[in-house]
Amino acid sequence: MHRERWMGLCFAAGSACFLVGPFPGYADLVGPQAAALTFFVGSILFTAGGALQSWVAYDQGDAARWSALIQSAGTLFFNVTTFRALSTALSDPQYDRLVWRPDAFGSICFLVSGVIAYRAAPRQWQARVNLLGCIFFGISAVAGYVVPATGSILDLAAANWNTSLGAACFLVCAIATVRESSTVREAQGHPTA
């Protein structure tokens, strides 16, 4: 498989994790430890996809390169927060609180990356859908803010739904990338597997 296809597959699998992870009832079904693991695995897959995207974008111009690098930085912020949530869930067998909340710095990186990609290709539907996903993740980060005075989250339902909606946008783009890379490889006479 070539880089674009691997990139798309990593983003698709990571997106699937973030799509189902905050879905109502998921943590009740699998338990908080498995739910925390879902987010952590998703963040690692996003990071792998981001690294491949940075590699692919290296020769595609400044906008593509900066968008990929900033998005990759955002995935690293998600790695930290998902690892922290996983560590907490694994160290406390009675853990029954929120498994993960969106990372503000990672979400900001995603928004900046999405804007750069959109400005570089405003007519491409993938740039629009990707930016929409970044906006949903940004809303999720704001809704997931923990109010210091009370220790409660602003709006847990909004944080969860916006995380899932953002992940759905990213999943659509990732599947399109996998399909397009397969079509290009076949047109060039290369096997897709």
Rank of each mutant, 00 (worst) to 15 (best):
128 R>C: 03
35 A>F: 06
77 F>H: 03
78 F>Y: 12
12 A>D: 00
84 R>Q: 11
32 P>Y: 10
153 I>Y: 08
176 A>V: 13
70 I>S: 06
123 R>L: 00
94 Q>R: 00
140 S>V: 08
129 V>W: 09
68 A>H: 10
71 Q>G: 13
156 L>Y: 07
166 G>A: 04
22 P>Q: 05
169 C>E: 02
62 D>C: 11
43 S>T: 10
9 L>I: 14
55 W>R: 01
179 R>V: 15
85 A>Y: 06
157 A>R: 00
184 V>Q: 12
30 V>R: 10
47 T>M: 14
108 I>S: 05
80 V>W: 14
189 G>K: 15
54 S>F: 04
192 T>R: 00
138 G>T: 13
158 A>R: 13
82 T>F: 14
97 R>C: 07
159 A>G: 12
8 G>W: 05
53 Q>Y: 04
164 S>L: 07
192 T>H: 07
7 M>G: 11
120 A>T: 03
156 L>Q: 10
90 L>C: 01
142 V>S: 02
142 V>K: 01
10 C>L: 09
179 R>N: 12
177 T>N: 14
65 R>I: 01
137 F>K: 01
157 A>Y: 04
76 L>A: 06
191 P>W: 02
174 A>V: 11
174 A>R: 12
8 G>Y: 03
155 D>T: 00
108 I>M: 13
168 A>T: 08
147 V>K: 08
119 R>T: 15
180 E>N: 10
178 V>G: 00
30 V>D: 04
53 Q>V: 01
120 A>D: 15
158 A>T: 15
92 D>F: 03
113 S>V: 13
11 F>V: 01
43 S>N: 09
44 I>L: 11
125 W>R: 08
1 M>Q: 05
130 N>T: 02
101 R>I: 08
42 G>M: 14
51 A>V: 15
99 V>A: 14
30 V>M: 04
57 A>S: 15
40 F>K: 05
117 A>S: 15
16 A>E: 02
123 R>Q: 08
82 T>Q: 06
68 A>Q: 13
49 G>V: 01
141 A>C: 01
110 F>M: 09
66 W>N: 11
181 S>W: 08
180 E>K: 11
30 V>F: 02
186 E>V: 01
142 V>I: 12
20 V>C: 09
68 A>R: 06
138 G>S: 15
46 F>T: 13
190 H>T: 00
175 I>P: 07
147 V>H: 10
92 D>L: 00
102 P>W: 05
46 F>E: 15
48 A>C: 13
